[in-house]
Design a protein around this nucleic acid. Structure first.
Lengths: 141, 141
DNA sequence: TTTGACTGGTTGCAAAAAACAACTAGACAA
DNA sequence: TTGTCTAGTTGTTTTTTGCAACCAGTCAAA
């Protein structure tokens, strides 16, 4: 593993997701229910397949997601968030909330984020719970 | 201004701070009291001066910080967070909190983040209030 | 009034990362 | 066995980053 620039928490986080794509991939899995390579490839931002491959591998190395084989289609991989990834939800929501206040976002997303924030800790716990259940079900192969 | 890849809140945020340096600069101003170019240049992560120049300019364009002349030293610029930048504090704290749980961080920073999280909304409001006061004092030139 | 350190940068070049398009081998369903 | 879908790979171009040297204006002290 490469040596860190510093052991400041902010820098440690940026070494994981300090780029233009990583958090979009996590968003796809966390909020948009995407689980397969091709699904993520076809998001609005049009990530290139080599970049997607690279980031999925790095996220797996960092322990943020795990890759398992699909039960029904041998070639298909299922990407699931680990506990470490699920724990990024508060970060994701705060970022989204800031953007709806200070950046230009689509009306659909503004509403979506509004509901998420309005739902508070209770809704967040529920969503994290669902992701944890999913994680448990892929973990026990 | 360049056209956005998408109007998803996450993407809109990443177009502002989706890189390895921007949030470190904001950290320096928000939590470490740095206000001058040379101070930021000498942070632990050793940012290059051309990158720092570039990011400070972009952050000013995005309305996240403002540049004013120092009252006592004509050549010195004072960089202050605007409301939009101060509003990033919850994002910064959530990221730092995640890092202390899941990444290797220095003991000093672990304690610092612990206090910040323990202080809750009350402490955060106080810190944001102080930054707002500072903003007001540089705004009325 | 000259010296030397400090100010916010700029410039030029090399290296790394990202973007883009074309391509591939294995799996599956009809 | 044909065509489509799967997760990628490969090669090339473009963009971004990293690094070191440099610069002119400012200021304080001698």
């Amino acid at each position: 593993m490469k040596k860190s620039r510093s052991y400041c928490p902010m820098n440690q986080a940026l070494e994981v997701f300090g780029d233009k794509w990583t958090l979009l991939i996590i968003r796809d899995i966390m909020f948009d229910g995407k689980r397969y390579f091709r699904e993520m490839l076809s998001s609005d931002e049009k990530i290139a397949s080599n970049i997607l491959t690279d980031r999925l591998n790095k996220l797996e190395e960092f322990g943020i997601l795990m890759k398992t084989k699909d039960a029904h289609h041998k070639q298909k991989n299922v990407y699931s968030l680990t506990e470490r990834g699920i724990d990024l939800m508060p970060v994701m929501i705060e970022i989204a909330n800031w953007s709806t206040k200070h950046r230009e976002v689509s009306e659909k997303d503004r509403i979506h984020v509004g509901e998420l924030v309005a739902g508070g800790k209770k809704l967040q716990d529920k969503m994290q719970g669902e992701l944890r259940e999913e994680l448990a079900s892929v973990s026990k192969k």
